[in-house]
């Protein structure tokens, strides 16, 4: 940023402040969320977020492929510990996330409104986001019982199949549902014991970033959820090709993007989940089958004898 630009920005902010109220409001710096910390992009780039009527809202970090790389390192580091937590504990932490979100509803509603939602839309989305977290908090210690099995093999062996998290999941959150959509893909992956790196909606990133502050105060271990902002165009290929990512969840319906994701994912045989349905408020968007998408089935054999 040049000196002149910086000056212009300050002026702009002052104008906005003056226009709103007498007191100069304190503006929030929107940053990334990696490994439990809030860094700026290593690239020191940003993009300006403007409201529907062209008003400048905030500068948002333009996450780079290196930010993504750092986030995957954090997620990988966090994975064994998170997967090793008891399911009960994971459920409690998801519930805690819901509590924290509930407590800051006003802020989320305001941020959603800022980015074009009506008051009632913002209220609905925030309420549903809280409820969705609670929904998956409840599943954390139940889906295993629904989907695992004891297998009646025809030999003297005790044989069972259970679910285990796939590992590190990279998520391309839906573009048009900044909070509910993001939580709808993050919560099932994390409830199931995965660690995630999620790219927030490019046009609606505010709630995602504020959500990272919720995470920060929810007893969630650092690195389990990492949130990036930036452009999908720039990061999509890296999300799909990173060799230390085990699963990729793509939300959207761009045929070319889907093709790219599937092509690149073949490099290390990532599990690819394509979420084309964009109605995040529908009843079908919450389901234990969503958790299954980032789970592996492990079958264990042991002899039965004296």
């Amino acid at each position: 940023m040049s000196k002149a630009e910086r000056k212009a920005e300050v002026v702009d902010l002052k104008d906005r402040a003056a226009a709103r109220q007498e007191r100069l409001p304190v503006l929030k710096t929107y940053k990334l969320f990696i490994d439990g910390k809030f860094p700026r992009s290593e690239s020191e780039r940003y993009y300006a977020l403007t409201s529907a009527n062209g008003e400048s809202i905030a500068n948002v970090q333009l996450g780079s492929r290196k930010d993504f790389r750092n986030a995957v390192v954090a997620a990988r580091k966090a994975f064994p510990g998170w997967a090793g937590r008891t399911a009960y504990n994971r459920g409690q932490i998801l519930y805690r996330m819901a509590e924290m979100l509930e407590g800051r509803r006003a802020q989320f509603i305001e941020e959603l409104e800022t980015l074009g939602a009506s008051r009632s839309e913002a209220e609905t989305e925030t309420a549903m986001a809280v409820d969705r977290l609670i929904y998956y908090a409840g599943w954390a210690d139940k889906f295993q019982q629904v989907f695992s099995s004891v297998n009646p093999v025809a030999s003297s062996h005790f044989n069972f199949s259970m679910l285990e998290p796939t590992g590190v999941a990279a998520l391309l959150a839906p573009e048009d549902s900044g909070l509910l959509g993001l939580i709808s893909v993050v919560a099932p992956a994390v409830a199931g014991g995965n660690s995630v790196v999620v790219l927030a909606s490019h046009s609606k990133p505010l709630a995602a970033i504020t959500f990272s502050e919720v995470l920060h105060t929810s007893d969630l271990p650092a690195g389990v959820i990492n949130i990036l902002t930036g452009t999908r165009k720039e990061l999509l290929k890296h999300f799909a090709s990173h060799m230390d990512v085990n699963a990729l969840v793509y939300c959207g319906s761009d045929a070319e993007e889907i093709r790219t994701v599937q092509l690149e994912a073949a490099e290390n045989l990532k599990r690819v989940v394509i979420e084309e349905n964009s109605d995040w408020q529908s009843e079908e968007r919450q389901s234990p089958y969503t958790i299954l998408a980032t789970q592996e089935v492990k079958t264990t054999w042991h002899p039965i004898g004296l």
Partner: peptide, 23 residues
């Protein structure tokens, strides 16, 4: 990995799911 044989190895059964993690 997708199959663990504990104190046995290379056992298969139609009722026992089989398949891999990772590559």
């Amino acid at each position: 990995c997708g199959v663990v044989w504990a104190n046995t190895y290379n056992k298969f059964d139609p009722s026992a799911p089989f398949g891999g993690y990772k590559e």
